[in-house]
């Protein structure tokens, strides 16, 4: 560095590398923002509830006790959130319902992201088929989500796996379009051109240079898809085409409780509230992640 002392002067502009923030430090300062902490905390709580349901649920979710039917919520009566028309414990069913929501949400996010990324990258790269493929994706996106999922499930039959498959189909276009748009923008960036100049092949450039830079938007999109998937699963189940009536899912509880809306409002209130809160905090989480995942905005944190 002997010949470059003045460089240190301009280095002050962008810290010249002096501040190498650690990943842990970034995470900690990100969580200090209340919105991020709430979004992340509530989401973690729902995931934990779903995973630990068998351990913490006071009753079996399918245990029927006709004598205790339609009991209101109470802190002392043994049923924290009350019981439904068959005397099943709402709290236990809610915990198992969280499990279904998390499984559906996570599976749909992972599957639609993988497929969407592949389609988006290919669409952005292939001159010949790219446009054609993306127009098909646009066509798929034109179908209303629920109607499209209904049609798919009608064809496949209703089960947890089929709900996941149907919702994956519905949400692939969202990811594909985001990745496609990023790819088109990134392809003209000089660092991509530089990789090509070094001799990097198409696959290498796409995977090592373009893909990592699309992940930020995809993760953000993923949190929204998680939220949509939870709502869609509940809606489909409510309409009677999603999960079989016996299962404990928020949608099923809502569907079964609607006949008792006036006599036992607690049956529908709690799953409704759970869906509302989960979706809300997923959206908050998505906004927070967007700020976190852009390495250029990290300095601002």
């Amino acid at each position: 560095m002997s010949e470059t002392p003045p460089n240190a002067g301009t280095g002050a502009d962008d810290a010249g590398g002096a501040r190498a923030a650690t990943a842990r430090g970034i995470g900690a300062s990100w969580l200090r923002k209340p919105a991020n902490a709430i979004g992340f905390g509530l989401f973690a709580l729902v995931v934990a509830a779903g995973l630990l349901a068998p351990l913490i649920a006071p009753y079996d979710p399918g245990f029927i006790a006709i004598r205790d039917r339609l009991e209101p919520p109470s802190l002392t009566g043994g049923h924290l959130l009350g019981t439904d028309h068959l005397g099943r414990d709402i709290f236990s069913r809610m915990l198992y319902g969280a499990r279904v929501s998390v499984i559906v949400g996570a599976s749909v996010v992972v599957l639609s992201s993988l497929i969407g990324i592949a389609i988006g990258l290919f669409g952005g790269y292939s001159r010949r088929f790219g446009n054609f493929l993306m127009r098909i994706i646009d066509g798929v996106m034109a179908f209303p989500e629920i109607v499209f999922a209904l049609a798919l499930i009608a064809a496949l039959g209703s089960s947890l796996t089929n709900v996941i498959i149907a919702l994956t189909f519905v949400y692939v276009p969202r990811v594909a379009r985001v990745v496609h748009a990023c790819t088109l923008a990134l392809r003209n960036q000089e660092f991509v051109l530089a990789a090509e100049a070094l001799g990097g092949g198409t696959l290498r450039v796409a995977v090592r240079h373009i893909l990592p830079n699309t992940l930020g938007p995809v993760v953000v999109q993923g949190t929204f898809i998680f939220a949509y998937a939870v709502i869609s699963e509940a809606s489909l189940t409510f309409l009677g085409v999603g999960l079989p009536p016996g299962t404990a899912s928020w949608g099923v509880i809502l569907a079964e409780g609607r006949n008792y809306l006036l006599d036992a409002p607690w049956i529908t209130t709690f799953p409704g509230l759970a869906i509302f809160l989960l979706v809300l905090n997923l959206n908050i989480l998505g906004d927070g992640l967007r700020d976190l995942l852009d390495p250029r905005s990290r300095k601002l944190l």
Partner: peptide, 22 residues
């Protein structure tokens, strides 16, 4: 591809010519 070793390019904008995630 083999020739790429022998011919190279340096770009104008030092902010967009380096991949931000590497």
């Amino acid at each position: 591809h083999a020739l790429r070793r022998q011919m190279q390019i340096v770009f104008q904008d030092p902010y967009s010519s380096l991949s931000p995630r590497m």
